[in-house]
Simulated scan of single mutants.
Amino acid sequence: MAGKPSIALIAHDQKKDDLADFAHRHEAVLAGWQIVATGTTGGRIQQACPSLSVQRMKSGPLGGDQQIGALIATGEIDMLIFFVDPLTAMPHDVDVKALMRLATVYDIPMALNRATAELMIAHATR
């Protein structure tokens, strides 16, 4: 993903609308990024922000988390915003942990909630 910096956007369960709202609020900033998202989350972001181009992977539990993990491992993702829903069961918990582990191993800035995502976006625009 040459040129623009790349950002992966993922949200689980009840956090999808929150991430779509976050993207809408920062649509002008995100226009300068290549955006990769898991399937359903990417669809919600495209609905909220029609001006953004979103590369959609598979749904998280169907391999999308792993696809984004592979992009991290190959140096194609610069930042990860991953709104985890801590109040719902995650049957694909191992995929979630693997993605977080790869972001940590490859030293990718990662936000797991909106407050941290706001700080990262503010810093990225300086």
Rank of each mutant, 00 (worst) to 15 (best):
M1E: 14
M1H: 12
M1Y: 12
A2V: 14
A2G: 14
S6M: 09
I7L: 10
A8W: 00
L9P: 00
L9R: 00
L9Q: 02
L9T: 03
L9F: 01
I10Q: 00
I10M: 06
A11I: 00
H12A: 06
H12I: 06
D13H: 13
D13Q: 13
Q14K: 15
K15W: 02
K15H: 09
K16P: 01
D18L: 14
D18P: 05
D18A: 14
D21R: 15
F22V: 08
F22M: 04
A23K: 01
H24D: 13
H24W: 12
R25N: 15
H26K: 08
H26C: 06
H26Q: 08
E27R: 14
A28I: 11
V29F: 11
L30C: 05
G32T: 11
G32F: 09
W33A: 03
Q34D: 12
V36Q: 03
V36F: 13
A37S: 15
A37F: 01
A37I: 00
G39T: 06
T40K: 07
T41D: 01
G42V: 01
G42P: 04
Q46G: 08
Q46W: 06
Q46H: 11
Q46T: 14
Q47S: 14
A48L: 05
C49W: 00
P50E: 06
P50C: 08
S51K: 15
S51H: 11
S51R: 14
S53P: 05
S53V: 12
V54N: 05
Q55L: 13
Q55R: 12
R56D: 05
M57A: 08
M57N: 02
M57C: 13
M57G: 02
S59I: 11
S59T: 11
G60Y: 04
P61S: 02
P61N: 05
L62V: 09
G63Q: 03
G64D: 05
D65M: 03
D65I: 07
D65H: 09
Q66K: 07
Q67L: 07
I68N: 02
I68R: 00
G69Y: 05
G69R: 01
A70F: 09
I72G: 06
T74R: 13
G75H: 07
E76Y: 09
E76Q: 15
E76L: 14
D78V: 06
D78A: 09
D78I: 06
L80Y: 02
F82D: 03
D85Y: 00
D85Q: 02
P86S: 05
P86R: 07
L87M: 13
T88E: 11
M90L: 12
P91S: 12
P91K: 12
P91D: 09
D93R: 10
D95S: 12
V96D: 01
K97A: 15
K97Y: 12
A98G: 08
L99W: 04
L99Y: 03
M100G: 04
R101M: 10
L102N: 03
L102V: 06
A103C: 04
A103Q: 02
A103Y: 00
T104F: 12
Y106H: 15
Y106S: 08
D107M: 09
D107G: 09
I108M: 08
P109A: 09
M110T: 15
M110I: 11
A111W: 01
L112Y: 10
L112A: 14
R114G: 04
A115W: 10
T116F: 03
A117W: 01
A117F: 05
L119I: 13
M120C: 11
M120Q: 15
I121T: 11
I121F: 08
I121L: 14
A122P: 04
T125H: 13
R126A: 15
